[in-house]
Amino acid sequence: MSKNKQLPHHISTPFMHWMFNGGHSAEVKTDCVVLRKNKNIGKIFCDGTTAKSYLMNNYCAERYEMFLKQYFNNGKSFIDALNLTAAQRYAVALTQNPIFMKVA
Rank of each mutant, 00 (worst) to 15 (best):
A104V: 12
N83Q: 06
S77K: 15
K29P: 02
K43H: 04
N40F: 15
P98S: 09
K69L: 09
M1C: 11
M1K: 12
T85M: 08
E27Y: 07
F72H: 13
L94A: 03
I44M: 08
V34S: 06
A61T: 01
M19F: 06
S25V: 15
K43R: 11
T50A: 08
H17P: 00
W18C: 02
E62H: 11
S2Y: 07
T13I: 09
N38F: 14
A104D: 15
M16G: 05
N4C: 05
H10M: 09
K52V: 10
L68H: 05
I79T: 05
E65Y: 10
L84W: 05
A26D: 13
L82C: 00
K76E: 15
K102S: 13
A61F: 04
Y54K: 02
A61Q: 08
R36I: 05
T50Q: 11
K29N: 07
F67R: 01
Y59A: 10
K76W: 12
V103A: 15
F45P: 00
Y90P: 00
D80A: 08
A104M: 12
F100Q: 04
S77W: 08
M56S: 05
V33P: 01
S53Q: 08
N57V: 03
G75H: 06
V28R: 06
K43Q: 09
L84Y: 04
P98N: 01
C32T: 01
M66Q: 13
I79V: 14
G48H: 03
A61R: 02
C46L: 11
G75N: 06
T85S: 14
P98V: 03
N83L: 06
K39E: 15
K29Y: 08
K69V: 12
H10Y: 10
K5Q: 07
D31T: 08
G22E: 09
G42S: 12
T95E: 12
I44R: 00
M101R: 13
R36W: 07
